[in-house]
Design a protein around this nucleic acid. Sequence first.
DNA 1: AAGCGCATGTAAAGGGTTACATGATTGC
DNA 2: GCAATCATGTAACCCTTTACATGCGCTT
Lengths: 177, 177
Amino acid sequence: MSLRHGLLGLLAEGPASGYDLARRFQEVLGQIWPAQHPKIYAELGRLADDGLIEVDSEGPRRRKAYRITEAGLDEIRSWLASGEVDHTMRLQSLLRSLFFWLMDPDDLRRHLDDEARFFAESAERYRAYAQAKDRGDFGDSPQTRSMRITIEAAVRLYQALADWAEWAKTVPPPAEK
Amino acid sequence: MSLRHGLLGLLAEGPASGYDLARRFQEVLGQIWPAQHPKIYAELGRLADDGLIEVDSEGPRRRKAYRITEAGLDEIRSWLASGEVDHTMRLQSLLRSLFFWLMDPDDLRRHLDDEARFFAESAERYRAYAQAKDRGDFGDSPQTRSMRITIEAAVRLYQALADWAEWAKTVPPPAEK
DNA sequence: AAGCGCATGTAAAGGGTTACATGATTGC
DNA sequence: GCAATCATGTAACCCTTTACATGCGCTT
């Protein structure tokens, strides 16, 4: 149950609507922590019921922006302080790699090319984000500093995976049977 | 729906029972692709219904080992060949890092120490696995060669995360408010 | 005979995605 | 007036986890 805290954390930066949050999740977190709008709206409802957020303003097109409450801030802070971090990753690329031996060598080569390209592009995308931040495009609030750290993780992860895919191409396939 | 293919892939190596598969998932894949036994037994039942696997033998303590069928091999091969790889990762550590600005600097420091330790230990564990493989402890079948590639990914990923956590500690916290 | 590890399952609840549905406002 | 985008929601389904439950076989 982390989407709950994800929403709470984003709302700690300032009021936002479900729509805003869905967009933010897609932009920065799309690959790292996907969240679809139905789940977001549902969770916002529950957070409001629990008094962790409250309606900040209602706008045009039935827009409803929420604001975090004191109780909500307490909740996210204690979640962050509690050391119980879930470290599972469920990376399909790694699961697939266990079964490379079942693949035709040409298909595998193509697959690794695709993987390397995807990961390199992802690394590049986050690297561009990091440079924009370092140039000062997003200002220098505490929030953007944290975002810079998250982005750095994404850059390193995707770069590691891109390097891995390139390396995997150099591993000789088992001798023809 | 990847557990299905994970099971199929493991069964392609040879017959195994639900219990065996649960153990293998925990050992090698515990952090990368967790799977609990209830899901495994349920999925095995469905795979058998669909004719992708069949009962290979029944042993003591009502043990039931399954064997992959031709249809099952076709299924996993076509899954592997189809380029539709799901690249989402849902790494809680990264989500949390977005909210570091909400944390007390001392708590953050402690948190990053824990994270760095956890990731470094994970990297080390997989590195030991890799060395055992390179020493020839697991033989040199096509399957273990693929496993070696998977392990390499784990080493690189966890090392990247360990380095990231160390790096994050060097990022100056926002000035005291 | 007691206890542990093997071995399989069911039931309930939680978390997430996809498809469906609707309506309001803005810009052209 | 029309299309695109903003904006919110419901319903059905799928996947996963946790808790509960049971019984066999080996070892001491």
